[in-house]
């Protein structure tokens, strides 16, 4: 049986702004299975607030937001 923890996909959205941050996250989530996790890297502050909020509205779960630098964040999402 596959370990769920290892089923993590990464997406680097540095340089992207709204709504492309959400569009690309959404398209990536379509590629993975329900329950799997996606880690997205953002460097645009409004996206770090808005993309997780919008994803929650779509039913997905935000497992954590980690600040990695001055303008760098990693958001961990579990697909609904």
């Amino acid at each position: 049986m596959q370990d769920m923890v290892n089923m993590t996909t990464e997406l680097d959205l540095r340089g992207e702004v709204c709504p492309y941050t959400f569009v690309k996250t959404k398209l990536k989530l379509e590629d993975i299975e329900s329950g799997e996790e996606l880690i997205v890297t953002f460097d645009h502050a409004p996206a770090v607030e808005n993309v997780p909020r919008s994803l929650k509205n779509e039913g997905h779960k935000i497992m954590g937001i980690e600040k990695k630098g001055d303008h760098l964040w990693k958001v961990r999402i579990r697909k609904a």
């Binding site: 709204c18 709504p19 492309y20 569009v23």
Partner: peptide
């Protein structure tokens, strides 16, 4: 055009 992209969401 950016708004149009957003409206598909």
């Amino acid at each position: 055009l950016r708004m149009s992209v957003g409206l598909t969401l």
